[in-house]
């Protein structure tokens, strides 16, 4: 009972604090408010799990997840390398690279563009994760099949975005390039690719999560004895949920970090775009 009351009290206090911070428009509140909110969720979770005596098989408290995170770093790191660096990242680079190159190739033919955009949009909405068992059958259990799933997942969102981005220049700009007597290649490199960057980065950002999902889900269909998806499915079977949640935490941090990194690159490279300006 104590646990419940204390966590509820902390929760209410934190809400009051957040309300106060927002009303005061205190400096740094844009960062502080969500962090406080996150901590209260954790405290409430811990309090409820302990207070209601929820079995750790169902929902472990955050403290034991933290313990698993701290004590099993070797396994977690090994899984991370297998799933992220070998599977997801390879597939991500290959898939996005291929999509951009093909988009540039398609771009020369308006006929193909008109046909491919709707089809690509359609395919991008399909459950491509379902290809995972087939890819595992084709490429074997190791990371190659995971990379293949990731390639299939990121390819179409990336293609559609890049094709759209390459159309983003207007007549005036293209005419200007022509008056400079710029050929196809200089126009592409100096005008159209830079103009397409916001779109390309949009695709890259969508693809970060897709890549991680693809790599982990593909491991459910067969994997060597390491990898995050493998660990999650086996530890669920062994009912050691704290390890599963630790793995999920790693995946969450990884996902957010990967996304953040791409977003940071976007900020650097498309600083000129209106959406990147500081709002006043």
């Amino acid at each position: 009972m104590m646990w419940i009351l204390i966590s509820l009290a902390i929760w209410i206090a934190a809400i009051a604090l957040n309300l106060f911070l927002v009303r005061q428009r205190a400096p740094g509140s844009a960062f502080l408010v969500p962090v406080i909110f996150g901590f209260t969720v954790l405290i409430l979770w811990e309090g409820m799990v302990r207070g209601f005596n929820i079995s750790p098989v169902l929902l472990p408290p955050p403290s034991s997840i933290g313990l698993a995170l701290a004590s099993e770093t070797d396994i977690l790191w090994q899984d991370l390398v297998q799933t992220f660096f070998k599977g997801a990242l390879t597939g991500y680079v290959m898939g996005c690279g291929a999509a951009v190159l093909i988009a540039i190739a398609i771009d020369r033919s308006p006929f193909l563009q008109r046909g491919l955009l709707p089809v690509g949009n359609f395919i991008a909405a399909l459950p491509i994760v379902g290809l995972a068992p087939i890819m595992v059958m084709w490429f074997g259990f190791d990371w190659h099949s995971k990379a293949a799933v990731v390639v299939a997942m990121v390819f179409f969102p990336m293609l559609v975005n890049t094709v759209q981005g390459l159309q983003a220049t207007d007549h005036m700009q293209r005419d200007l390039m022509r008056t400079y007597a710029a050929g196809y290649a200089p126009t592409l490199l100096k005008l159209r690719l830079p103009a397409a960057m916001p779109f390309i980065f949009n695709g890259l950002k969508i693809s970060t999560t897709l890549a991680l999902i693809g790599a982990i889900v593909a491991e459910f269909f067969g994997s060597p004895i390491k990898g995050m998806g493998f660990r999650i499915s086996t530890e669920v079977g062994r009912l050691s949920l704290d390890m599963v949640w630790a793995e999920i935490t790693v995946a969450a941090i990884l996902g957010s970090g990967f996304y953040g990194l791409v977003a940071l690159m976007e900020k650097r490279m498309t600083f000129w775009h209106p959406s990147q300006r500081k709002s006043r």
Partner: peptide, 13 residues
């Protein structure tokens, strides 16, 4: 942030 978590991957659990 919730969408950068590969929820699909932990759906089975």
């Amino acid at each position: 942030a919730s969408q950068t978590v590969p929820i699909l991957a932990i759906a089975p659990m």
